[in-house]
Write a protein that binds this DNA or RNA. Structure first.
Lengths: 156, 156
DNA sequence: AGAAGTGCGTGCGCCACGCACGCATCTCCG
DNA sequence: CGGAGATGCGTGCGTGGCGCACGCACTTCT
């Protein structure tokens, strides 16, 4: 419309499209009240800040705070603080690392595992319900591509 | 066991996969230093906070701060402050709304348009280079699905 | 053993946020 | 036509999370 937005070849256009879509998704998901809606009745400790900690712990098993800091995307201190809130709520437990007396490992409690499983299910259901209009098999293909993108993509 | 619609089966697994992938992407993109790298030499005003304002303005044309606040994902005051930084840097200009004397419209300056175009190109190139190993046509298909997801998905 | 290195949690200053207020302007109705 | 309520904007204030850097505990190397 205004200028020739895609002045060069097709590859660049694809990149632009992906970049724009990611930008939109990031903005929509970061600050929306969807988090509040999905975490309804799961205790005050579970929110958009603490969930990445729970999720990473569930995915990779017990790890130290510093170890999963780059995964969560904040400083070690940030992980410590978030984990402290989760610990106070009984969702996470601190254990001394048997292999290294200095290290503390963060482990999900029984209740923490339940919480993250429940939240994942809610989110999955929410996503699938909004994709109900897609033809059969499209969602699977998209999921596969998306997961692949998290590995191959610019953020892997 | 819990609620209903996709209690088990393949659909739920797909939803989980999408949910996890989104979570990973969000975390990786929000706080990484990729932003710094991509905004190299574009002035201090362009960062991960102000870019959504620039991007939204480029997508939809001149709008008021309050109007694009939900799009950016923060309060009106937040948009005002971010826009002020961009205005001080000469990337955004405030114009009185001809239709409403109370309203001020945010418009991209010449330099602002250049900045957002440049940044989009850099990001697109970065994405495509990391996807160079994908078979031909896969990236296009993924881009189409992803864009569709921004509309149909749970955040549309 | 003593010294250096590593891992953790915490105090401090900073920055962005949301809320609420004040001012300017528009709109509606008497 | 004029005044009252509604609407839109920007800004001060309190809150909260963040990164940095420090101190302490423990390990490892010489």
């Amino acid at each position: 419309m205004r200028s020739a937005r895609y002045s060069c070849g097709v590859e660049n256009e694809v990149g632009h499209e992906i970049a724009d879509a990611l930008g939109i998704l990031l903005r929509r998901t970061t600050r929306t009240q969807l988090h509040r809606q999905l975490t309804e009745g799961m205790g005050e400790a579970v929110d958009e800040l603490t969930y990445p900690v729970l999720s990473a712990l569930a995915r990779t098993g017990p790890r130290s705070a510093a170890d999963l800091a780059p995964d969560v995307g904040v400083d070690r201190s940030g992980v410590t603080r978030r984990a402290s809130r989760l610990e106070a709520a009984g969702l996470v437990r601190r254990e001394p690392d048997p292999a290294d007396g200095r290290a503390h490992l963060l482990v999900l409690t029984e209740e923490g595992q339940r919480a993250v499983a429940e939240l994942r299910s809610r989110l999955a259901a929410h996503i699938m319900s909004s994709l109900s209009s897609w033809p059969a098999g499209e969602a699977e293909a998209f999921a596969r591509r998306l997961r692949r993108f998290t590995v191959d993509g610019p953020f892997g």
